[in-house]
């Protein structure tokens, strides 16, 4: 049966993990010593934080890893109560068949400070029976007491040639032919995000058994959040209300994240500049704004308000003479 390739080809052992060699080396030492401190994995999306955590748990906990491994991701309501209840229930039982238990908390940076403080207490209380692995995109959003209790591992975006190697392997196993340049263009769009790279590859593979650069472009443009171009064009025509309404529609209905939207806005603006639809002065001015709003969204501002504000930058202004 077909499975999503991101799962089918998810590295199952530490050795298989791609592009994080120095981290893997250290983790293997922990496995040899059969003990580990609390760990924190930080880094952008799709660089292998979760994969590494699961692989480490398997290596560390052996045959009964599933019983002794608790994975909590950010979809689970993770207020203070959940942290206390779930983790407590899991931690107070002694590990059976494994040296200790491991709790993996994903996207800790989306927890409020209060919940993080609650977590810190739990981390202290169960040091004898359990170890924690925390993962986050931005370690700056983690409170200091937690950071100081963890060995911090910074995952870098995976290098282009390593992504290509991996894609190559998958393509071979799946009998997908590819013309030169195809995988390179996937890497270009994936921006060091292996999950995205693999998803692009699998999407492209639906086009046929031989895939080309064209196919990749096709997929990537289909996968773009819809209507970004329309939103921008409406703003450029001075229809702010229409533009704003469409933006809200897209974000509410499709659930497109602020980060995705702003990346698209950037790509769209950059394309317009290439096509000479906007002057270079205006372009660089807009890029400055986009960068600022991007930063704010990642800092935790309300993405929709920030994007609406960004739209006002596109409105035609009367020339001050």
């Amino acid at each position: 049966m077909n499975r999503p390739w991101v799962e089918k080809y998810r590295p199952q052992t530490l050795e298989e993990v791609v592009g994080q060699d120095h981290i893997i080396q250290r983790l293997k030492q922990y496995v040899n010593e059969e003990s580990m401190p609390n760990l924190m994995f930080t880094g952008p999306a799709g660089v292998g934080k979760t994969t590494t955590a699961i692989a480490l748990a398997k290596a560390m906990l052996g045959e009964y890893w599933k019983q002794n491994f608790l994975e909590l991701n950010a979809s689970d309501a993770r207020g203070i109560d959940t942290v206390r209840k779930d983790i407590k229930n899991f931690c107070r039982l002694k590990a059976v068949g494994s040296p200790f238990r491991i709790i993996f908390l994903d996207e800790v940076d989306n927890m409020t400070k209060d919940a993080q403080h609650a977590l810190r207490r739990e981390m202290e209380m169960y040091t004898k029976t359990s170890s924690f692995i925390l993962s986050c995109n931005y370690s700056s959003k983690i409170i200091d007491p937690i950071q100081s209790r963890c060995a911090i591992f910074r995952f870098a975006p995976i290098k282009g040639h390593q992504v290509i190697q991996r894609l190559e392997k998958i393509a071979n196993t799946e009998n997908i032919q590819h013309t030169p340049g195809t995988l390179e263009s996937i890497v270009y769009f994936a921006e060091g995000d292996m999950r995205r790279a693999v998803n692009i590859l699998q999407s492209t593979a639906t086009m046929g058994t031989e895939i080309t650069e064209e196919h990749v472009h096709d997929v990537v443009s289909k996968a773009k959040p819809k209507d970004v171009r329309r939103i921008i064009n409406m703003a450029l025509d001075g229809d702010f209300m229409g533009s704003r309404d469409l933006l809200r529609e897209v974000m509410v209905v499709q659930g497109t994240s602020g980060e995705d939207m702003i990346t698209q806005v950037y790509q769209e603006v950059s394309r317009m500049s290439m096509d000479d639809l906007i002057g270079s002065e205006e372009y660089i001015n807009l890029v400055g704004h986009i960068g600022e709003y991007d930063f704010r969204i990642r800092e935790g501002a309300n993405p929709r308000i920030q994007l609406e504000s960004l739209l006002t930058k596109f409105l035609p202004k009367e020339k001050a003479d």
Binding site: S75, S203, V219
Partner: peptide, 12 residues
């Protein structure tokens, strides 16, 4: 993954 990350992959 969290819901948010899953939704980001929806287009593919």
């Amino acid at each position: 993954t969290s819901r948010k990350v899953a939704i980001e992959q929806f287009p593919y």
